[in-house]
Design a binder for these strands. Structure first.
Length: 440
RNA sequence: GGCUCUAUCGUCUAACGGUUAGGACAUCAGGUUUUCAUCCUGGAAAUCGGAGUUCGAUUCUCCGUAGAGUCACCA
């Protein structure tokens, strides 16, 4: 096989969204798998919507998720000379002609002389597909001689850049025969096409910028890890066949195979993404996790975490890690007061302190017993296991809930919290006794 | 509407003519000496319908049905 060359052809009309990213990812995986090369080309022939300012968004997005390219970035708009040359060539050969019916009045449009034949191409994911080209009639390929439309510009650029594989979304399927016709007229080698299944929303409609598509930067700012995003996106419409589903970008490159791309549209599933993201998060090193988490804390908690490094690391390990699926979830934990009680004494909450039907009096009594047991534990033995072990002796007589429920409420002010052993350990002996005394 | 594509649990998917139709997410139940979360175990859950080909169809063919994409001087 010739050297594989694929392409990223985003139009710079805004942020790069999840559908674009998936297409680029597949182009990347395919090219890299065969040690091929990737061309990045901004498709900006629509002068109304394309803006140079959007280019960095796209470049940054690619960089953030680790997708590299080898050639470019090119701008379609800066390749006008070559487009015009090819346009004139077709006109000269009688394969295209200028016509008078410009609706915008900006000169003569250029139409392609349609040979009206059946086009058959072997789609790399869908198999043979055939179209009767006469339905397109003599379609327009340029607004005027200096101003080609997309279909013409892509075809010329792909040809000139030696693109061997065009991997794109299914929405381009019906424009493929037109492009093949142009390629044939230009005497170019027709690349192989692969049309990827669409990513759809809950309504089964194509995800697009104006329809539910979220930008890649949006996901990243929610605290989804790039690795997780890549991993999830790779599995939308493709899978390697086994039961494993966690793969790094490098591993995906190794095993990627276009023939295993599915044909049916894939619904974007946040639950699944969250799960994969959670998996990547808990496998982060402690330092890495902390560093990333800190970026999502508000001012108050950033300060608290930085002033209490050891304590906050314990809180991350024992409390936060199993409770958030993406880093931005920490904001919810904070706003719901799930972290408050580690740093300041809770409001006394006698309403909920009683276990089941126990009276307040009885509850205070058990808290006193609990306090006495805890007080006897030496500072240097203050560990989760040792606290548990000591409290154990109270359970048989009083019942587990009767001891632990009031203890939890006294320490946290909440009905739901991490287990009281962990809580006690995190707070430290002195603080625990103070909180118990305040309640009793 | 024309053209094109698609059709397995709620979701993503596996099974390239023979399986008790598998896995993951979600969901439900139980367990981890109280709760939330995590973790473990288990359960429920699918081949769109109809013909054909075949000893045998999720798998091949055809017809329906349903959904989607596309029909720009947008990309």
């Amino acid at each position: 096989m010739d050297k594989v060359i694929t392409r990223f052809p985003p139009s710079p009309t805004g942020e790069i969204h999840i559908g674009n990213m998936r297409t680029m990812l597949f182009n990347y995986l395919f090219a890299r798998h065969f040690n091929g090369e990737i061309v990045l080309r901004f498709e900006d022939t629509d002068k109304e919507r394309s803006k140079k300012e959007f280019e960095p968004f796209i470049l940054d997005g690619l960089k953030a998720v680790g997708l590299s390219f080898d050639h470019g970035p090119f701008r379609q708009s800066e390749r006008n000379d070559i487009h015009k040359e090819k346009l004139l060539e077709l006109i000269k050969k009688g394969l295209a002609y200028e016509a008078e019916d410009s609706s915008t009045g900006s000169g003569k449009v250029v139409r392609f002389r349609n040979p009206n034949k059946t086009i058959i191409f072997d789609d790399q994911v869908r198999g043979p597909i055939s179209f009767d080209s006469s339905i397109f009639e003599d379609f327009i390929i340029a607004r005027n001689i200096d101003n080609p439309i997309y279909h013409f510009a892509v075809v010329v650029d792909d040809m000139e850049m030696g693109v061997t594989h065009v991997i794109r979304g299914e929405e381009h399927l019906t424009s493929t025969p037109r492009q093949i016709l142009l390629l044939e007229a230009l005497g170019a080698k027709v690349p192989l096409y692969a049309h990827l299944p669409l990513i759809v929303g809950d309504d089964k409609k194509k995800l697009s910028k104006r329809h539910g598509a979220t930008s890649v930067s949006g996901f990243l700012s929610q605290g989804y890890l790039p690795e997780a995003l890549v991993n999830y996106l790779a599995f939308l419409g493709w899978n390697p066949g086994g039961e494993r589903e966690i793969y790094s970008l490098e591993e995906l490159v190794d095993i990627f195979d276009l023939s295993r791309v599915g044909k049916n549209p894939a619904k974007f599933d946040y639950n699944k993404l969250n799960d994969i993201n959670y998996h990547y998060m808990i496998n982060l090193s402690d330092e890495d996790y902390r560093e990333k988490l800190l970026k999502f804390l508000n001012e108050e908690y950033t300060k608290l975490f930085e002033e209490n490094v050891e304590a906050s690391n314990l809180i991350i390990k024992e409390v936060i890690k199993t409770r958030i699926k993406k880093f931005a979830d920490i904001k919810t934990m904070i706003s719901e007061g799930e972290l408050d009680y580690f740093f300041k004494k809770p409001d006394m909450n006698l309403e909920i302190i009683c276990f089941k039907d126990n009276s307040l009096e009885k509850t205070k009594e058990t808290l006193k017993i609990t306090r006495d047991v805890l007080e006897k534990i030496p500072e240097d033995k203050w560990s989760i296991d040792f606290i548990k072990e000591n409290l154990n002796t109270l359970f048989a007589e009083n019942g587990v809930g009767a001891i632990l429920h009031p203890l939890r409420v006294a320490l946290s002010g909440k009905k739901q919290s991490p287990d009281p052993f962990t809580l006690s350990y995190l707070l430290g002996k002195k603080e625990v006794l103070e909180r118990l005394d305040a309640t009793i």
